Simulated assay, not measured.
Amino acid sequence: MPLKLYQFAISHYSEKVRWALDFKGIGYEPEYLLPGMHGKVIRGLTGGKATSVPVLVDSGKAIQGSVEILDHLDSAFADNALLPEAPDERASALAWEKRLDEEAGPAVRTFAYHHLLQRPKVVAPLLTAKTAFWNQYLLRLGFSRVDETMRELMNINEKTAARAQTVIESLLEEINAVYQEGRYLAGPGFSRADMTAGALFAPLFMPSQYPVPWPRPGRLPPGLREWHQQKGSLLEPVANCYRKHR
């Protein structure tokens, strides 16, 4: 019975799991859900109240959350381990992953959506990617409500976006200092720490491997376009690691 990954195409935490599955050479069936309409499906799988994605189903067992899924993959599929063997390097990889999940993930989401939600024609295809084609049109018709709901649920506004930008730049500078020395985040080899960094920052450098129709640079909202012009070079070491291992 093949594994199934329930996800949003746009989700950078889902990208982390997609990457882990591909890196380990594990076949799976992708199940793309529409954000906001996914709750019933996820609760049906997990039997709980949380509706977060990704959720991986393996032999009838549902595993929710990118950390838990990566733990399961390394336990169930030994090839291409996601963690180093040395105890100190393993601890470092897990510490980096935790920090990036808690800091980079929310910051990228807040910063990117604050700007993208200002352009309905740009963000609608990203939110509805890989779902039924009519979802894009329905979302655009009700976009004012979508914008309001997303901003409220994720606390997205001018102030939180500015704070998120500061977090993003600080983390990238710290990560780049490691990469520029020719090392990886948790030792001499690639690990789930680097995978987490690449996946969570991916919406900012918009790689072709990501299953969404990224907008052309000229169609980016002004705030994002200006940030790329001024600070885009900060993304290069992380983007290079992504391209090398993805």
Rank of each mutant, 00 (worst) to 15 (best):
residue 127 L to E: 07
residue 112 A to N: 14
residue 177 A to L: 03
residue 169 E to V: 13
residue 113 Y to N: 12
residue 142 G to K: 03
residue 160 T to M: 07
residue 152 E to N: 11
residue 123 V to G: 05
residue 152 E to T: 14
residue 102 E to D: 11
residue 169 E to N: 13
residue 102 E to G: 07
residue 103 E to D: 08
residue 161 A to P: 11
residue 122 V to M: 07
residue 121 K to G: 13
residue 156 I to E: 05
residue 120 P to W: 04
residue 145 R to G: 02
residue 132 A to Q: 15
residue 177 A to G: 08
residue 164 A to E: 05
residue 112 A to P: 08
residue 112 A to C: 15
residue 155 N to Q: 05
residue 165 Q to F: 04
residue 128 T to N: 05
residue 162 A to T: 14
residue 152 E to S: 13
residue 140 R to Q: 15
residue 107 A to S: 12
residue 116 L to H: 02
residue 126 L to W: 02
residue 106 P to I: 02
residue 110 T to W: 04
residue 100 L to C: 07
residue 154 M to W: 14
residue 124 A to L: 05
residue 139 L to A: 04
residue 154 M to F: 15
residue 117 L to W: 03
residue 135 N to C: 11
residue 147 D to V: 08
residue 111 F to M: 02
residue 126 L to H: 05
residue 107 A to Q: 10
residue 143 F to Y: 12
residue 103 E to F: 03
residue 139 L to K: 01
residue 110 T to H: 09
residue 175 I to R: 06
residue 161 A to W: 02
residue 157 N to D: 15
residue 156 I to L: 04
residue 124 A to K: 02
residue 159 K to F: 00
residue 138 L to M: 11
residue 118 Q to G: 12
residue 105 G to K: 06
residue 102 E to V: 06
residue 111 F to A: 06
residue 125 P to F: 03
residue 109 R to D: 13
residue 124 A to D: 11
